[in-house]
């Protein structure tokens, strides 16, 4: 028994080390004073300072942020609608086709999604720019939102909705005032997921963006292709830090909720 316990702990620690060591090293080396990325030259924050002067990078960061905020909002609204339809409308006509369209983009190779959206924009003669990236990311994001919210809706106790309707609420009101507040954490999680997908995406954005709408990942990508630079390490460390803070905050908030209820 002791032995299997040891093996299990070792497997878990190995897995977690594999997951976190590269990230930890990246953050560590972003504070490296040396320009040589693999030689430790002492602690320094000079690469963070030089980031502040990189106007292109900062401009791209703003574009990415705006694209992510807007596309995640669209994705959350439409995706939640899709989740409600899947969870509450029973066996409506075209249900299989509908759910196929929700699940397919989740595993679709990004190059295909990007290419097909670009060809659509070209066919419709829509100039590529900020909004085409927003539409592309919203399309991807809404499928993730739909799956996350749907998973929550099907586990919700339906008797609460039924009680509301027995007390005279219309189905729409029961949905808005009972079901959706109960599903709010999953909707928030869906928004966060869509936001992160958007702010992280390089492939779909490369296909659908135009001049003047180069996103941060696209900028990072074109620099990384040329080689490792300490500046990119610093950007990466900042992004990892932001996500880390969001995750810890989300975890703490999520942990408090059930106890209050």
């Amino acid at each position: 028994m002791k032995q299997t316990h040891f093996v299990r702990t070792a497997a878990l620690l190995f897995g977690l080390a594999f997951l976190y060591a590269p990230i930890a090293l990246l953050v560590l080396y972003s504070f490296n004073a040396s320009r040589l990325v693999t030689v430790w030259g002492g602690f320094s924050t000079r690469w963070y300072a030089s980031l502040l002067e990189n106007e292109q990078l900062i401009a791209s960061a703003w574009i990415s942020l705006r694209v992510a905020l807007v596309s995640a909002l669209i994705a959350t609204i439409v995706g939640t609608c899709a989740a409600i339809a899947l969870a509450r409308f029973g066996r409506f006509r075209g249900r299989i086709a509908f759910s196929s369209m929700i699940y397919a983009p989740l595993v679709m190779p990004e190059v295909i999604t990007g290419l097909s959206l670009l060809l659509l924009f070209v066919a419709l003669d829509i100039p590529r720019g900020f909004w085409t990236v927003v539409v592309a990311h919203a399309t991807l994001g809404m499928c993730f939102v739909a799956v996350v919210v749907h998973a929550r809706l099907v586990t919700l106790d339906r008797s609460l909705e039924e009680a509301a309707m027995d007390l005279g609420a219309t189905p729409g009101r029961a949905l808005l005032q009972v079901t959706l507040p109960l599903a709010a954490p999953s909707i928030l999680a869906g928004y966060a997921l869509a936001f992160i997908l958007s702010i992280d995406d390089v492939v779909v954005a490369s296909f659908t963006s135009g001049p003047g709408s180069t996103t941060l990942p696209m900028r990072i990508y074109s620099q990384v292709r040329l080689g490792v630079t300490p500046e990119i390490n610093a950007v990466s460390a900042i992004l990892i830090g932001i996500v880390g803070v969001i995750l810890v905050a989300g975890y703490l908030v999520g942990r408090r909720k059930p106890r209050q209820a």
Binding site: G15, L19, L25, T38, D200, L239, I240, V243, L247, Y251
Partner: peptide, 21 residues
């Protein structure tokens, strides 16, 4: 949370981290 958290950090950055290694 620990097992899933890396998924939330940038995919591009995680791949990039391996170049240095």
């Amino acid at each position: 949370v620990l097992a899933i958290a890396p998924f939330w950090t940038s995919f591009l950055i995680r791949v990039y981290a391996w170049i240095t290694i």
